[in-house]
Amino acid sequence: MAAARFYVAGKVQGVWFRASTREQAVALELRGYANNLRDGRVEVLAVGDEAAVERLAEWLRQGPPNSRVDRVEREPAGEGEAGDGFVCG
């Protein structure tokens, strides 16, 4: 089991980034969330199979078609920080 927190910067708000992230995470059977931050970034918590977390990390570097990802920061997270399923806040 792996857990990671990502901070995604760029044109990532108002372009369906959170909903698209949720679709990817659900398909990968991950738990966690995607939330907009006041500074314009999106915070993503992903918990699940290590390979699935890595696949989501790769996807976050590209994002959905209307987004522009400038930077993705990653830090460790606790598995207990995620509830059931994957939600957008």
Rank of each mutant, 00 (worst) to 15 (best):
37 L>Q: 08
53 V>K: 00
39 D>N: 10
4 A>P: 03
87 V>D: 06
51 A>K: 10
22 R>I: 15
18 R>T: 09
14 G>N: 11
35 N>V: 06
15 V>F: 12
42 V>N: 07
30 L>K: 01
57 A>R: 11
26 V>N: 00
74 R>K: 12
87 V>S: 06
7 Y>M: 14
2 A>Y: 00
6 F>Q: 04
36 N>M: 01
9 A>K: 15
59 W>M: 07
75 E>Q: 11
17 F>H: 06
36 N>H: 05
44 V>E: 02
64 P>Y: 11
74 R>I: 12
6 F>N: 09
12 V>W: 03
43 E>N: 02
4 A>Y: 03
52 A>I: 03
78 G>K: 08
27 A>P: 08
15 V>E: 12
30 L>I: 01
87 V>T: 14
49 D>Y: 04
41 R>A: 09
15 V>T: 14
88 C>W: 03
88 C>Q: 09
29 E>S: 09
62 Q>H: 11
81 E>S: 03
23 E>W: 05
31 R>M: 02
50 E>R: 10
85 G>N: 06
64 P>D: 11
21 T>D: 13
52 A>Y: 07
61 R>Y: 09
6 F>K: 02
19 A>N: 11
80 G>P: 05
34 A>S: 03
66 N>K: 10
12 V>S: 09
82 A>N: 11
34 A>N: 01
84 D>L: 07
72 V>T: 00
43 E>P: 01
26 V>W: 01
17 F>I: 12
74 R>H: 08
73 E>Q: 10
44 V>H: 01
89 G>M: 08
44 V>D: 04
34 A>Q: 02
23 E>V: 07
21 T>W: 07
77 A>P: 05
62 Q>N: 11
57 A>L: 13
75 E>H: 04
29 E>L: 12
7 Y>I: 14
29 E>D: 10
72 V>S: 00
18 R>I: 15
64 P>G: 10
25 A>S: 05
24 Q>N: 12
33 Y>Q: 01
26 V>H: 02
53 V>N: 01
32 G>Q: 01
69 V>E: 09
88 C>I: 14
83 G>C: 11
6 F>R: 02
60 L>Y: 11
66 N>F: 10
49 D>L: 04
8 V>F: 14
16 W>T: 14
32 G>I: 00
9 A>G: 10
62 Q>E: 12
34 A>C: 05
83 G>A: 13
4 A>E: 04
48 G>A: 03
11 K>T: 15
40 G>Q: 02
79 E>Q: 02
28 L>A: 07
84 D>R: 15
56 L>R: 09
89 G>C: 13
50 E>F: 02
10 G>V: 14
77 A>V: 04
63 G>M: 14
50 E>G: 05
85 G>M: 08
57 A>C: 11
8 V>Y: 14
30 L>C: 02
7 Y>V: 14
9 A>R: 15
12 V>E: 10
